[in-house]
């Protein structure tokens, strides 16, 4: 396990009060607000929420890849104890792709269509180790391709992205992310664009690789079934904030936040054949028109008058946190 140059930490990554805003005509609008998150080496954590909940923005903020007019405006991003908001751009670039890597949603778009696979892999190595022997670097690329299950890796190094299927391209992207053996991988819905069998293969593969290498993995998804297969701990995000956090099994068995409960009830397999699928009424509010108080209250089935008051994320039982004025009690659970 690598220790950082500036300090030691039990956590690979720790977010403390992260806030990311987008500057617009009407001033800065927060897309992510006061997010706290911690992940240990080898741990797999799920970051769950609907589109627009701020989960991807959280991932990009960690990587320092928020494009203008967006910017991280508050909080600490500690990678192995080193605050990424305080390091110079050069140091951030050195960490990016080396100690932390990211995989994106659409494998058809993440690889540059006009560059060969070996070019796109080699640069990830040479960017962090310019003096490396080219043969050694090339062998590492080949081994990485083989590791993610690409047949004939030696030959496939010379291929272009369009010569791969979507699933294979995502494997290439994973191989690139893993090239430098990072401490942290952020996977932003990497299997959403793939079909279910490929999805299962890739999830199994990622799980194995991260375990072997003690890599911390943040899996961003809207799909609770994926989270159930893969992760140990879950953060549920809604409208830019974490609304519930805790061990996977606890959350699935006994959600405390009405939003989490809604997400769980929306899983199709929970329904009788022919029965109407559950939907959370309404939709995620746009980031410039957030409701007052609990941001979920307009869609909440249990809403009460005091839900208009601001509410913090509070501890609720062992290792569990919830941001709700009236967390769901034992009696209200729907089995």
């Amino acid at each position: 396990m690598m220790t950082s140059m500036t300090g030691r930490s039990d956590y690979t990554l720790e977010l403390r009060g992260l806030e990311t805003v987008f500057d617009g005509d009407k001033g800065a609008i927060a897309a992510v607000r006061n997010v706290n998150l911690a992940i240990k080496p080898g741990e797999i954590v799920g970051l769950v929420g609907e589109s627009g909940s701020g989960k991807s923005v959280t991932g990009l903020s960690i990587m320092g890849l928020i494009d203008r007019p967006g910017r991280v405006s508050k909080g600490e991003i500690l990678l192995n104890g080193e605050d990424l908001r305080k390091v110079p751009a050069k140091r951030l670039r050195a960490l990016r792709g080396d100690r932390m890597a990211m995989i994106f949603q659409d494998p058809m778009m993440t690889l540059n269509p006009v560059l060969r696979i070996d070019t796109q892999m080699m640069e990830a190595i040479t960017a962090h180790d310019p003096k490396i022997d080219k043969t050694i670097a090339r062998n590492r690329c080949r081994d990485a391709l083989g590791m993610v299950g690409i047949p004939d890796p030696e030959e496939r190094l010379y291929a272009y992205p369009h010569q791969f299927s979507g699933g294979m391209r995502q494997r290439v992207a994973i191989a690139i992310a893993m090239l430098n053996n990072p401490d942290l991988i952020i996977a932003d819905e990497p299997t959403t664009a793939l079909d279910v069998t490929i999805q299962a293969q890739i999830i199994a593969e990622m799980q194995k690789l991260c375990k072997e290498r003690d890599t911390a993995l943040i899996w961003i998804t809207h799909d609770l079934t994926v989270v159930a297969e893969l992760t140990q701990r879950v953060y549920v995000m809604y409208a830019g904030s974490v609304v519930e956090e805790g061990p996977l099994d606890d959350i699935l068995d006994r959600p405390l936040h009405p939003y989490t409960q809604g997400l769980i009830r929306s899983i199709p397999s929970d329904n009788e054949p022919g029965a109407r699928l559950f939907q959370i009424p309404g939709m995620t509010p746009p980031i410039d028109r957030m409701p007052k108080g609990c941001r979920f209250h307009p869609r909440c089935p249990y809403v009460q008058l005091d839900c208009l008051n601001d509410v913090d994320l509070v501890e609720q039982g062992a290792g569990r946190h919830v941001r709700c004025v009236h967390p769901i009690s034992q009696g209200e659970q729907i089995s």
């Binding site: 990587m63 890849l65 670039r93 050195a94 960490l95 990016r96 792709g97 080396d98 890597a101 990211m102 994106f104 949603q105 659409d106 778009m109 993440t110 690889l111 540059n112 269509p113 006009v114 560059l115 796109q120 640069e123 990830a124 960017a127 962090h128 992207a173 690139i176 992310a177």
Partner: peptide, 23 residues
């Protein structure tokens, strides 16, 4: 997305522009 991914690899901005973008 491929430029974002290229940046996520930590390669220099110069290489992003003159190889990934320009080509």
């Amino acid at each position: 997305e491929y430029v974002r991914f290229a940046r996520a690899k930590g390669i220099s901005e110069w290489r992003v522009v003159f190889l990934h973008v320009l080509k």
